[in-house]
Amino acid sequence: MNESLKDWSLRMARLELGQEVRAGGFGLNDGPAPVSSSTFSEAGAEPSVVFARFVSLMRRKHGLSVEELADACGIEVADVINIEDEQLIAIGPRTVYQLATWFEVSVTKLMQLAGLRQVEDPTLAQQGLRFAARSNSMASLTKEEREALDEFVAGLGKQ
């Protein structure tokens, strides 16, 4: 025998109890904020700075222009520019995934660095702070920057 509308209503109401039901993405730019970056802040480093510095140095290490890196990773030139300008608001998981794959580092950790995942590795913030402090955004990669970058890449791990 089919359930009555009243019984269905009571059953589904119990099922819906405590649940949010929102779906749809309008106005997403003003919508869900990126995952909290408090772990980084507590360590004294903004993840956007660390992520920007990392991408910039990796690009320069490979001797690529912004356009060449975007082309190699299959992402938008504007995304690379925004990342290096520390503007991560419009950077989605696909872009970070492509970068991690091309740089051959852990996708999960780079997502954390980009603020797209909760920071799971407590040492990542400290590593990021150390890395950011030892590097800058000058055009040529100094010996110190190369060492800092290599150390940080080792910390990020392979995929």
Partner: peptide, 9 residues
């Protein structure tokens, strides 16, 4: 979904 809503949903 990497293709819509900035990959956030």
């Amino acid at each position: 979904d990497p293709d819509r809503y900035q990959g956030r949903l």
